[in-house]
């Protein structure tokens, strides 16, 4: 194996970050605002109700959930849209022609997705600072879960973007896979509120553990033991990253 092309990987990472910063209205402001709207709507719909079995009111419960949902959706959007745009515009061939290893390409894309996710979540949370008590009992746990979720969703976006032939197919993955997975990950409810059938479905969704762990880091309450969930999360992240690496290396849907 030849030496690493760190300059190349950094150039790709920087391009990916600049790409979303250039259209920040669409990539940062809009998603942060959408999360805010959810929060306002549920605040007035639910009033001061408490979440059953937890020591928090619904408003506080929602904040980390919505932040996590925004992170997941934006990490996915960042890689998938870049990938399909590159394909449609023909730019992707430069990634194939450049002396970059699959590891370097995947790492650059995923790190940029994490940056986008963190920026969106921060934009959402900063506005809430005056209204919410951010005591954050376990910031380290929140951080680890946030990064894991972004990596995993960034990886799924990379795979979705590689698979898709056009923008329509990306939209299909977003609407039929990503949206249900994030909506059903316990952003809006505690799993204890669900009937057994839906609990089972919920428990099979890896994003449930991510959302729940992130919330635990924020509020100190959750449905699962965050340290036990960490196993599920780490395995999911590693599998996703390995899949990205292997697919890129094989030229799947990129090279004829």
């Amino acid at each position: 194996m030849s030496q690493m092309n760190l300059t190349g990987a950094r150039a790709l990472f920087m391009r990916e970050v600049r790409r979303f910063l250039k259209v920040n209205m669409q990539t940062i402001v809009t998603p942060a605002l959408t999360a805010m709207l959810y929060l306002v709507i549920f605040r007035y719909a639910m009033g001061d109700r408490h979440v059953p079995g937890m020591e928090v009111d619904y408003f506080t419960f929602l904040v980390p959930g919505l932040a996590m949902m925004a992170m997941m959706q934006n990490a996915f959007a960042n890689t998938s849209s870049s990938m399909i745009m590159g394909k449609v515009m023909g730019m992707q061939i430069y990634l194939l022609m450049a002396p970059l290893s699959a590891f370097e390409v995947v790492a650059a894309f995923l790190l940029a997705a994490v940056v986008r996710a963190v920026v969106v979540a921060a934009a959402f949370l900063v506005v809430l600072l005056p209204f919410v008590d951010f005591s954050m009992p376990h910031p380290g746990i929140a951080l680890v879960y946030g990064i894991c979720a972004s990596l995993m969703m960034g990886g799924m976006g990379l795979i979705g973007g590689m698979w898709a032939r056009d923008f329509d197919q990306v939209a299909m993955v977003t609407n039929f896979v990503i949206l249900p997975l994030t909506f059903l990950s316990g952003v809006f409810y505690s799993v204890q509120q669900l009937p057994p059938f839906w609990q089972a479905i919920n428990n099979a969704n890896p994003f449930f553990y991510l959302t729940d762990g992130f919330r635990y880091g924020f509020l100190g309450v959750g449905d699962t033991d965050p340290f036990a969930s960490m196993g599920v999360v780490l395995v999911s992240v590693v599998v996703t990253c390995l899949a990205c690496w292997q697919l890129w290396r094989s030229g799947w849907r990129m090279k004829e």
Binding site: T7, M14, Y94, A98, P99, L100
Partner: peptide, 13 residues
Amino acid sequence: EVLRFTAGLFGCR
């Protein structure tokens, strides 16, 4: 910007 980016991809300062 495109030229700077492409140079970077090829590992050039």
